[in-house]
Write a protein that binds this DNA or RNA. Structure first.
Lengths: 114, 114
DNA sequence: CCTTTATTTCGATTATCGCCGAAATATGGA
DNA sequence: TCCATATTTCGGCGATAATCGAAATAAAGG
């Protein structure tokens, strides 16, 4: 990932309103959440949320699909992981005590398989 | 990690000048880099960098220690990983195809041990 | 078509952020 | 103590970004 895209992603996540929305979407998985439903859960005006979803979308972190009258938003997990990898790049610098805690992240994500 | 601290961390990283500095520090490991040396490598005025380092520091992502006339900055890896974990919280939502790519992050960090 | 529901775009206001010159603080050495 | 080096703080200016009311666009149903 290049610097500009990483900055766009981090900027998109760097405001509470958008971070809250993103985290709800992360929980929702591939199914996603409709814009109106998100606005209701977050208790923010629909237009404000729409602007914020557009910013997350432009940063590549989420995507949208239309379903009837609603627009469903969902996380682009590939971009999300690319951003996290960008931050971790060359994190080790040769000393394992730095790297070790990072491995806990994977363990925290305890899926059934793999 | 609570929301406010996460937003502070993401905001601190959401600017190219600071993200560049942070990534250099991530590479440097525990040894850290002196403020002046960082300013030289990044080719930015010392006072501008100082302000940006203060923002990263206030967000808990880096710390500083004095060494003679210089001030050495280094990453607080614990806080860094806490921020990444915050973003990944409940990422799985039951489907492993979402979670699986996240595990690659840990594998990309291939230290000698663990 | 016309209405209702869902979402986005527009426009203007307000707040916040980044920058750098200049001055202040801190350390080490002659 | 005085000076040189290293870093931070202060000041204000210019740019960027967040918010929300109001209007515009899109889809479904009668």
């Amino acid at each position: 990932m290049e610097m500009k895209l990483a900055v766009a992603g981090l900027s998109a996540l760097a405001y509470e309103g958008r971070l809250r929305a993103f985290r709800l979407l992360v929980r929702a998985g591939s199914a996603g959440i409709a814009a109106g439903e998100l606005a209701r859960q977050l208790d923010v005006p629909a237009n404000t949320l729409s602007t914020n979803l557009a910013i997350l979308s432009h940063a590549g972190l989420i995507e949208s699909r239309r379903a009837g009258k609603s627009v469903i938003y969902s996380v682009r997990y590939g971009q999300m992981t690319a951003l996290l990898q960008f931050l971790m790049e060359d994190c080790c610098a040769g000393s394992s005590e730095i790297c070790a805690p990072l491995k806990e992240i994977a363990l925290a994500c305890d899926c059934a398989d793999s």
